[in-house]
Design a protein around this nucleic acid. Structure first.
Lengths: 126, 126
DNA sequence: TTGTTAATGCAACACTGTTGCGTTATATTT
DNA sequence: AAATATAACGCAACAGTGTTGCATTAACAA
């Protein structure tokens, strides 16, 4: 799979992520870009960019999908496992550049994990 | 809020959780009980049991709601923070009775966190 | 037993996300 | 430059979980 043609939708979405320091929800992208692109297109481009290893996705507190740029991932390998922090005041979602130490759980094979931390970001504490 | 009347729906749902060692999804309860109770009722009873500190809820991999019995929680205080493990083969969701050590994140106030681990449970490894 | 009102059932809705399909546009080939 | 193949698109309709409004029913106290 993956993106094979450089279309306007791909171009615009890539730019969104290249100019954003935080993760972006699919909903927000659709709200902002619905005059230019159909929501189906946006969902499909996000899917493909994730397949390509350009973006990674995870679920926020309401079970909604968020996307952010990957660091050091490829289509075949996704190394970039990190927790996410969502500010409950302003809604901003950050990728935390730290490793998570998973608890020891005997007799189980761990394949994926996701840690979502919620609270107040620096700007909203003050 | 909270449950004030011991209705059949409350009784049946409480029994479900008292006889289950694992967490149960809202969807599964609705599937199993839809002949006896309307889904609206089930959602509302689950909400109230959570408000009462009887159940806790969290989101599974598709963003769907899961519930399990609380240990040592009350309506006013929810102490029982633990990770959850979902088996990708059989779908079983367990509460893991361990503490999670959150990574140090400066300049942020942590209010909630949820850790979802996925993989294979003991029965499905063999 | 009666009265109050919490709890229920139903229908319709809200919302994110998906699917099918005919059309458009990208990129390759001639 | 024109023709061709087909990826990508827009639209409409749908799928699934969860919510809301409102009339009816049932729990419980007086």
């Amino acid at each position: 799979m993956g993106v094979i043609r450089k279309t306007k939708a791909v171009e615009v979405l890539l730019k969104e992520f290249n100019t954003s320091a935080t993760a972006i929800s699919a909903k927000k992208l659709i709200d902002e870009l619905h005059t230019s692109f159909n929501k189906t297109t946006i969902y499909r481009v996000l899917d493909k960019l994730e397949d390509d290893g350009v973006l990674h996705s995870f679920l926020g507190k309401e079970g909604h999908k968020w996307y952010a740029k990957c660091n050091g991932c490829s289509a075949s390998e996704h190394n970039d496992i990190h927790p996410h922090f969502q500010c409950l005041s302003c809604g901003k979602m950050d990728c935390l550049p730290v490793n998570v130490t998973l608890p020891k759980i005997p007799n189980r094979k761990i394949e994926f994990s996701q840690l979502l931390i919620q609270g107040k970001c620096e700007a909203c504490i003050a």
